[in-house]
Simulated assay, not measured.
Amino acid sequence: MARFDRSYLVPAETFLYMAEQLTDPGRPGGPFRALTIDGRRAFRYHSVYYDTPGLRSFHDHRQGRRLRFKVRERVYEDTGERQFEVKLKGKRGDTVKHRRPIVGADTPLDPGYRAFLAETLHRAYGIGSPATLRPSLSTDYLRATFVADGERITCDAGLVCDDLRAGRRVTCGADLVLVETKTAGHLTDADRLLHACGVRPAVFTKYCGALAVLRPALPANRWRRAARWAFGGGDPAEGAEREGPAVDHGATDRRCGPPAP
């Protein structure tokens, strides 16, 4: 529940190459394992994010405040499991997630979950909980997960985001996969493979990136370019982090093509 995250907007062909390489039985150190339940390797996720009327969570993230948090309900649609989650920023800049199961007809705004949020924020940050929270954004997508010792990679396709206050929707390009690497801090083999293919980490989160497109009046320049690439077909190089050498996203490295038939 405590990890460093890196996000990538990956063309589908490059994603297939990466998955093939990571799960190769001959991979040094052994292959990554794909999460499989009842023969399935892709699972439906639904999340609802909660924020203050003034979008405090969004703006705290935009301003880079260390004492920032996100609140959401996550639904694992294939099993019906529901979790109330509070995502915090750790002292090292890592993501620390706290969660509590949601049962029966309970909702994240019920007193027990509000008390859990207040306790979590007080214990971690020494701050109070917002007086008012409202649903702000929902996300739906299909997720595959790969794991190895100390490494986890989530791969999300078909991302759909709905602004629950303004009634607008955006959909991620069908030829893109949102890949997130989650580790204790070091680069994963997936990071190295993607870098070799000319794909750099993107300045992108589902919540902030979607709101940047759904609400153009918001001050969201740090996410706008990557969000336009994800949802509107912009230039992928514009959405990449500025670290490292420039790369040509117009062509795929010969090592990064689709798997051989």
Score class of each variant (00 low, 15 high):
173 G>V: 06
64 G>P: 12
77 E>W: 01
187 L>K: 09
177 V>T: 03
174 A>D: 14
159 L>E: 02
247 V>K: 00
68 R>A: 09
119 E>C: 10
14 T>C: 14
106 D>Q: 02
98 H>M: 02
223 W>N: 09
44 R>W: 10
190 A>P: 07
198 G>W: 13
57 S>D: 08
168 R>N: 10
230 A>T: 05
41 R>T: 15
249 H>T: 15
88 L>M: 00
78 D>A: 06
118 A>D: 01
144 A>W: 13
60 D>I: 04
69 F>D: 04
80 G>Y: 13
14 T>P: 06
136 S>P: 13
97 K>L: 13
2 A>V: 08
108 P>H: 01
12 A>K: 14
239 G>R: 04
174 A>V: 03
181 T>P: 02
173 G>P: 00
29 G>K: 09
6 R>W: 05
250 G>I: 06
210 A>N: 12
102 I>N: 00
38 D>A: 14
117 L>W: 12
115 A>N: 06
124 A>C: 15
9 L>P: 09
135 P>W: 05
78 D>Y: 05
228 R>V: 09
6 R>E: 03
173 G>A: 13
116 F>L: 03
86 V>G: 05
241 E>I: 05
185 G>D: 04
17 Y>K: 08
210 A>I: 01
183 T>K: 03
40 R>S: 14
118 A>T: 00
137 L>W: 04
120 T>V: 04
162 D>Y: 02
94 D>A: 11
103 V>W: 15
64 G>F: 10
116 F>V: 08
39 G>L: 07
251 A>F: 06
248 D>N: 06
184 A>K: 07
79 T>Y: 04
